[in-house]
Design a protein around this nucleic acid. Structure first.
Length: 450
DNA sequence: TTTTGAGTTGTTCGA
DNA sequence: GTCGAACAACTCAAA
């Protein structure tokens, strides 16, 4: 007997319930097909860096199973063909809770059923799968703090080991991964399960103690940089939570809260699949926004004249990653200073980020725009100059990503337009006046409430 | 059903 | 420079 393990965003062997379920179904033969299906529908020019990272991660996973069964095409057709080719009676997956993934899995499920093959969902990319944490009345939570308490109280199962003695088989010819390896512009971080664990343990040893304070400092690089590994499931959050439980302290508490945010947003998107595109608070559809034009381009290119914003946008281009604190600052700038709809920014992030996760990205943006899961004050508008001074006090982060400001001293680094003689050659003057645009944003928000 | 306390991450102004 | 108040009113979730 054999079974198919269909990998998607769970590119790991350790602590993988779907894989364990596949091995169990394979019985004494222990024959498992390690399948990954490249969906040509997702091969748009956008998201190139992310696909390059995926290729690297697949390569790593393939090396550990003696070669992946890699297919390219419509998942329904390919999964059926592979399962039939292996005479498998079941295909095993981690449940996908995204709007597209759900629909795709349902299609595959019916296609398999027509051949008498079962689709078995085991596990998910979350410690607590979406839909499990509910209020007393059974409704989804809409506020983070009560959600996180209920999430913590709900608890999760213990982390599991990788299976042993599996005989990996490939019934069909494999697609060549090399053709997918488009050189992305960003220098990619090391990909794969082993790299994820190395990174994680390095963070536990050297970063966790300072995390509560240093995570807001892009110049110190105090974050774990685990987002991309979580995105592809190279490590499971349950594994990380188990490690954190062994290292109690403010760092562990702060880090677990960040994992809770990831699960909260996945839960919100599960409950409201339309919120990936639509305003969570419907009344914001009436909000007055400006047409994106040159301002959007200046923002994308890191040419707004506000150093902290430009440094963040250039870090995004250069690395396919941006420090979380700075994501908030640049997002606030797009929505509140340039008056451009959050969806344009969210799309740009989705295209550029290696760690782009639909739920976290869209709802992070909705939060900043004020139309998301946030009952917080409507008047929250980030001041890019102040944010720069507070989170990058010496300007090291700015100088790292904006070479035109490399020679500017600490006193002017976050407001180079005040330099005697204006900003240095090659660096723009501010494209808008923050104080003016802040008041304009508040005016438009007041109109929305009226 | 009603009440009550609370809500990630902020900024400005004036004393 | 520091500190507290003001910026509104609403929604959520539990008691």
């Amino acid at each position: 007997m054999s079974a198919v393990m269909w990998f998607r965003r769970d590119l790991r062997l350790r602590d993988n319930p779907a894989l364990l379920s596949a091995v169990a179904a394979a019985g004494s033969d222990q024959e498992v097909v390690p399948l990954f299906v490249l969906d040509p529908g997702l091969s748009k020019p956008a998201g190139l860096p992310r696909r390059a990272y995926l290729a690297a991660s697949l390569k790593d996973l393939g090396a550990r199973v003696g070669g992946l069964q890699l297919r390219r095409g419509d998942p329904a057709a390919e999964v059926v063909a592979v399962a039939a080719g292996a005479s498998a009676t079941s295909v095993h997956i981690a449940a996908d809770f995204g709007p597209r993934g759900r629909a795709r899995d349902q299609q595959v499920e019916s296609a398999l059923a027509a051949h008498g093959i079962k689709l078995v969902r085991a596990g998910s990319p979350y410690a607590v799968p979406p839909g499990q944490v509910r209020t007393r009345t059974g409704d989804p939570y809409q506020v983070f703090t009560p959600y996180s308490r209920a999430w913590r109280d709900h608890g999760w199962t213990a982390a599991a080991m990788a299976p042993r003695g599996v005989r990996w088989i490939r019934p069909l010819p494999s697609h060549r991964l090399e053709t997918e390896q488009v050189p992305g512009r960003p220098a990619l971080p090391a990909a794969g399960e082993r790299a994820a664990h190395l990174r994680w343990h390095d963070f536990l040893d050297r970063g966790l103690d300072h995390y509560a304070g240093a995570r807001d400092r892009p110049d110190l690089d105090g974050t774990s940089r685990m987002s991309v590994h979580l995105k592809w499931g190279e490590i499971h959050p349950r594994t990380m939570l188990a490690d954190l439980a062994r290292r109690p302290g403010p760092g562990a508490v702060a880090y677990a809260a960040e994992l809770a945010w990831r699960e909260f947003y996945a839960d919100v998107l599960w409950a409201r699949p339309d919120s990936a595109r639509q305003y969570l608070r419907a009344e914001f559809a009436r909000m007055q926004y400006d047409e994106p034009g040159l301002a959007l381009k200046a923002w994308c290119d890191g040419l707004t004249g506000y150093p902290i914003v430009d440094a963040g946008m250039r870090q995004l281009q250069a690395e396919g990653w941006m420090h979380n604190r700075i994501r908030m600052v640049v997002a606030s700038f797009l929505v509140k200073d340039l008056h451009i709809e959050w969806r344009y920014g969210a799309r740009h992030f989705m295209n550029c980020l290696l760690d782009a996760d639909l739920a976290s990205n869209q709802h992070g943006w909705q939060w900043v725009a004020g139309c998301g899961t946030d009952a917080a004050p409507y008047f929250r508008v980030f001041n890019p100059t102040l944010a720069g001074k507070r989170f990058d006090p010496h300007g090291d982060y700015v100088r790292r990503y904006v070479p035109q400001l490399a020679e500017v001293g600490e006193k002017w680094i976050h407001q180079p337009w005040t330099l005697p003689g204006g900003p240095p050659r090659g660096y723009p003057a501010p494209i808008v006046d923050h104080d003016h645009e802040r008041r304009e944003s508040l005016r438009r928000l007041a109109k929305l409430r009226a």
